[in-house]
C-alpha cells in the first residue's frame, strides 16, 4: 500500500528533512521523490510505502498536515487508490 505526499509552499531550508523525518517516525518508507523549486515556490511529490506504518493512516495524515501548518506549507497525504481509480481503467 502506498500513499502520495504533496508539499507546496514558499521555499525554505530543511523542508525535505522535516517531512522525511516525520515519515521515518511512523515507519513509512519513501520510495520516490520528485521535487522542483520554481522562483521562490517549493513543490514536492513523495511516494511512500505505508504497509508497515506504526500508527493509523489517518493519524499520519493529521501529523503531516500539522507539520505543514507549523511551517507555512500545504501538505496533503492521500492514499494512492484515489489516483489509480481516477486515472486507470
Amino acid at each position: 500500500m502506498k500513499a502520495v505526499i504533496t508539499v507546496v509552499g514558499h521555499d525554505a531550508k530543511g523542508i525535505i528533512s522535516k517531512v522525511s523525518t516525520k515519515c521515518a517516525e511512523v515507519s513509512a518508507n519513501i520510495t520516490e521523490i520528485s521535487q522542483t523549486v520554481l522562483k521562490e515556490y517549493f513543490s514536492m511529490i513523495m511516494v511512500v510505502d505505508i504497509s508497515d506504518i506504526t500508527v493509523p493512516f489517518t493519524d499520519m495524515v493529521d501529523a503531516l498536515r500539522r507539520l505543514g501548518e507549523e511551517n507555512g506549507l500545504d501538505i496533503r497525504t492521500m492514499h494512492e487508490s484515489i489516483f489509480n481509480s481516477m486515472h486507470r481503467i
Binding site: I45, D74, M78, F83, M86, H87
Partner: peptide, 16 residues
C-alpha cells in the same frame, strides 16, 4: 506507477 501529472491534476481538481 503513479504519474506526476495525474497526481497534480487530481490535487488541482480538489484544491482549486
Amino acid at each position: 506507477m503513479l504519474n506526476i501529472n495525474d497526481v497534480l491534476e487530481t490535487i488541482n481538481m480538489i484544491k482549486d
